[in-house]
Write a protein that binds this DNA or RNA. Structure first.
Length: 275
DNA sequence: CTTGTACCCTGACCGC
DNA sequence: TGCGGTCAGGGTACAA
């Protein structure tokens, strides 16, 4: 569900609330969200008594750093959500409760996941570091440069849209912001990554950063299922340029926005301004 | 290596 | 009202 701006919004909502808190109890209702743990009892044994040192984000992962050095990694995938509070969230909003973590301030961290594609993984620090090293650079980081994007596009014949979704090339970009950034940069999503001119790569790099930053400033895009903590909606959906706007006029030139399928996923673009 | 496809799962929506 | 097909902010395993 969520891409970098959405996951980062959740991290900002949660981190001041959970940092320093101790996990007092856990309840797992749907075991398939335990991605590398045997079952609810194993989850409980590993986590009860642990304190949360910090909450970080890397790509689309939330990373709870624990006081024993290990890492609880959460992947929200399409429909994972969090709520935090003293009483169970409204079942209308949270109808697929998958896990609960009681904290030492009397509140509970509730994890809901309708499709159960997301989940929790408990990793030793070196294992997480190794995984993190495989991921591409954070596009909003200070040091992210056009040369980094140029380097991973070079020689690639796959469509640039597909390459933007590859987490090993650049971290945190998903289906919405890939289309949005390519539109802002005026680039046809079907072009081979390796065929972009240096000036075009530079434009794409700038657009990617601007779009992600703007989406983050608007607390993400609530198009369908995504909610920040406790049901809070994003506001970037009002500013979408092409995503899910097929058949409607391009905000730039008035031409009809088109939808195509690339690597099995929808891409939206304006055939007039993206070349 | 690179690229495409099936799959995990539930629910909303559309045409018949 | 029901039914089948399609689609959904993701990622992985496997085949070609």
């Amino acid at each position: 569900m969520p891409e970098l701006p959405e996951v980062e919004t959740i991290r900002r909502d949660l981190s001041p609330e959970v940092e320093g808190r101790q996990i007092r109890a856990t309840r797992v209702h749907r075991s398939d969200i335990l991605m590398n743990l045997a079952g609810p009892e194993a989850f409980r044994q590993e986590l009860v008594g642990r304190r949360i040192r910090s909450l970080d984000r890397r790509a689309k992962y939330l990373v709870f750093r624990l006081d024993d050095g290990r890492v609880l990694q959460v992947q929200l995938r399409m429909t994972g959500r969090f709520a935090l509070g003293r009483s169970r969230p409204d079942p209308g909003e949270f109808g697929h409760l998958a896990a609960e973590l009681d904290l030492d301030d009397g509140r509970t961290l509730w994890y809901d996941d309708m499709r159960r594609l997301g989940g929790f993984r408990l990793l030793a620090a070196p294992d997480w570091e190794r995984e993190s090293d495989r991921l591409g650079p954070e596009p909003l980081s200070e040091g992210y440069r056009p040369a980094s994007l140029a380097g991973v596009l070079e020689g690639r014949r796959a469509p640039v849209k597909n390459l933007l979704l590859d987490q090993e090339l650049v971290a945190g970009v998903g289906n919405i912001y890939a289309s949005e950034a390519l539109h802002e940069a005026g680039l046809d999503p079907r072009r081979a990554g390796g065929e972009l001119e240096p000036a075009e790569v530079e434009r794409l790099h700038g657009s990617l950063r601007r779009i992600l930053r703007e989406a983050l400033d608007h607390a993400g895009t609530t198009f369908r299922d995504y909610r920040a903590v406790n049901g809070r909606s994003g506001r970037f959906q009002e500013r979408l340029r092409v995503y899910a706007r097929d058949g409607r006029p391009c905000r730039g030139c008035g031409e009809e926005v088109r939808r195509i399928v690339q690597a099995g996923r929808s891409t939206y673009f304006c055939p007039a301004c993206q070349t």
